[in-house]
């Protein structure tokens, strides 16, 4: 469902051109569990941003569900982000003034769904991450692991096809980190495509497929057996 063809992303830093991604070819199928690994600055976050349509490639094509995204305008990309893609970040990115339930509700508010439908789906998403009893708490009243669970609930409330996670356990202790990993793996087993950027070799080992980047190039791309 995801196909990258000869895709490059360049940044101008001073008078030097940096190749964050250099002629990448990659395809990821529906329901896959992919971890993207590599040292800092190897381009893995840039790749994730491009996959999430937050960033656009300098050249090459990104084909998502058969549609070439280079022909899309801002609104169409926003639409895809709203309906097909869920994001999880290292620093959670919850809106501090809103309760857990309201944070989860925001994607649906932006999409213009009715109050009734929103309430139903928010409750379902919060139940999915085991936070029903915390729905009225604000982010500052929640632990790190709980915050990330709220963020996961927010990412799945629109029932996307792809879940993009950027170091989801980076700000968590090992116990809550592994809880989070288990949770997103469960979601993956439910059919959600999971693409994970991580430093953590342990998490890398658990995924179906590992992609290793160095200086904007894929140096390792292998499907592994058994979890």
């Amino acid at each position: 469902m995801i196909q990258l063809k000869n895709l490059s992303r360049e940044f101008q830093v001073g008078n030097q051109v940096v190749h964050a991604l250099d002629a990448i070819d990659l395809s990821i199928s529906q329901g896959d569990y992919v971890s993207i690994m590599g040292v800092s600055g190897c381009g893995k976050t840039t790749l994730l941003n491009i996959l999430g349509l937050l960033d656009t490639p300098s050249s090459g094509d990104y084909i998502l569900s058969g549609i070439n995204t280079s022909e899309m305008n801002d609104d169409e990309m926003a639409n895809i982000r709203s309906t097909k893609i869920g994001f999880i970040f290292q620093s959670f990115h919850l809106i501090p003034r809103l309760t857990a339930a309201e944070n989860v509700e925001i994607p649906m508010i932006l999409a213009g769904h009715s109050q009734k439908m929103r309430a139903e789906k928010v409750a379902k998403a919060l139940a999915r991450v085991n936070l029903t009893d915390r729905s009225d708490h604000r982010p500052e009243q929640l632990s790190g692991g709980e915050r990330q669970r709220v963020a996961i609930a927010r990412s799945i409330v629109m029932e996307p096809e792809v879940l993009l996670a950027d170091e989801p356990t980076g700000n968590l202790d090992s116990t809550s980190g592994s809880e989070i990993v288990e949770l997103i793996e469960e979601l993956n087993q439910g059919g959600l495509t999971l693409i994970l950027v991580t430093h953590d070799k342990e998490i890398g080992k658990r995924s179906n497929r590992v992609i290793r980047l160095l200086d904007g190039k894929i140096i390792f791309n292998q499907t592994q057996q058994g979890i």
Binding site: G52, L54, D74, D75, A78, N79, R81, S82, T83, F87, F89, S91, H93, I95, I106, P107, L110, A111, R154, S155, M158
Partner: peptide, 16 residues
Amino acid sequence: QSEIGLLKAIGAKNRQ
């Protein structure tokens, strides 16, 4: 900024 970035990431259009 980060809130605006987040809203965009979860599907907010520029107009919104």
